[in-house]
């Protein structure tokens, strides 16, 4: 029998994944600030506390460092915690446990333990929450061997990647763009996984490869649609995972299109765009390039409050259209 596919929001898809995992495995439980009766700051856990009780949908005090450490300790001793940071910005408070402990414990102990830990990070700008609640810090964690770092862009992937993360024996950090939570899309019922470390070609094309992450995948697809009206055939790759990163899919695409544009919301320099560009520069795809690689990323500044300023800080569809058009036409 085919699995039924319904329209769910990205937040509902995550919630469904957590509920399925908790039903299937006693060891899976949720920890975070105000994830119980409140339902989470973005209503991702919603009413799960009513189904699973406060032992398995645990409100923590506002103690990101200690809470992250408790999750690490529970993970190495047989549980499967899913820890929600209320905002990804608060990763800054938990970094010690994430970077020094979770990421390195297996290695430091010579493989004697695994750390099957999932951490969820509501990320990104666009909500008017200003500089301390709007950052995109995934590259920080992507720089740490021992962690896996993913950025689902669709409800389908949000569920499938989360279920893959829960089953994974190592710590997986999931960055969820807050503006995606309400986005709807087809989500199969029941259990399925999306592999960590595999990019997805969202739109095939011959003239240019756009490598995008998270919400920028949708903006890139919109831009590609606009440009198809001008006769341009643009390929859009949803990177999905930044550690491990899918070199093969990106390299093969660039060999086909000979042009690369990287689009991501995080601050432009020293981030995903640099990594993807270097990946191409170091590969056989370099010889296929017909134009310099272009990066579109966040401005080198904190996210401002004013909505117009806020939008101007991160790439928008017209920016992508313009950069892509110039690249295809050989303007630069």
């Amino acid at each position: 029998m085919d699995t039924a596919v319904r329209e769910l929001s990205y937040a509902q898809a995550i919630q469904e994944a957590m509920a399925l995992a908790m039903e299937a495995d006693e060891r899976v439980f949720l920890m975070g600030e105000d994830i119980g009766v409140y339902g989470g700051a973005f209503q991702v856990t919603g009413d799960l506390v009513e189904r699973f009780g406060t032992d398995r949908v645990m409100d923590t005090p506002i103690s990101e460092l200690g809470g992250a450490g408790v999750a690490v300790g529970a993970a190495v001793t047989g549980m499967r915690p899913i820890f929600e940071f209320q905002f990804s910005d608060f990763a800054t408070l938990g970094m010690e446990q994430i970077v020094n402990q979770a990421a390195k414990m297996r290695f430091m102990l010579g493989g004697e333990v695994s750390v099957p830990l999932v951490m969820r990070f509501p990320a990104g700008s666009g909500t008017g929450a200003a500089a301390q609640h709007s950052q995109s810090l995934e590259a920080w964690l992507g720089h740490v061997p021992g962690l896996k770092v993913i950025q689902p862009a669709t409800p389908h992937d949000a569920k499938g990647l989360l279920l893959a993360a829960i089953a994974d024996p190592d710590p997986v950090m999931i960055f969820e763009h807050k503006l995606l939570y309400k986005m709807k899309g087809p989500v199969p019922e029941g259990h399925y996984t999306v592999p960590i470390g595999k990019a997805e070609i969202r739109r095939e094309g011959r003239d240019l490869t756009i490598v995008a992450t998270s919400i920028m995948v949708h903006k890139a697809l919109e831009a590609a649609e606009t440009l198809s009206g001008e006769g341009m055939d643009i390929e859009v790759i949803d990177l999905r995972s930044i550690r491990p990163i899918d070199r093969e899919t990106v390299i093969e695409s660039v060999k086909k299109t000979s042009k690369l544009l990287c689009v991501y919301e995080a601050v432009k320099t020293l981030g995903i765009g640099a990594e993807v560009s270097a990946m191409i520069a170091e590969s056989e795809a370099f010889d296929y390039l017909d134009a310099p690689i272009v990066r579109l990323g966040g401005a080198e500044m904190p996210i401002p409050y004013n909505p117009d300023l806020e939008k101007a800080t991160v790439p928008q569809v017209p920016d992508i259209v313009s950069a892509a058009r110039d690249l295809v036409k050989g303007v630069r």
């Binding site: 992250a68 450490g69 408790v70 300790g73 001793t77 549980m79 915690p81 402990q101």
Partner: peptide
């Protein structure tokens, strides 16, 4: 905190 997690 890791000890607290193990105790949990």
């Amino acid at each position: 905190p890791i000890a607290v997690g193990a105790a949990l």
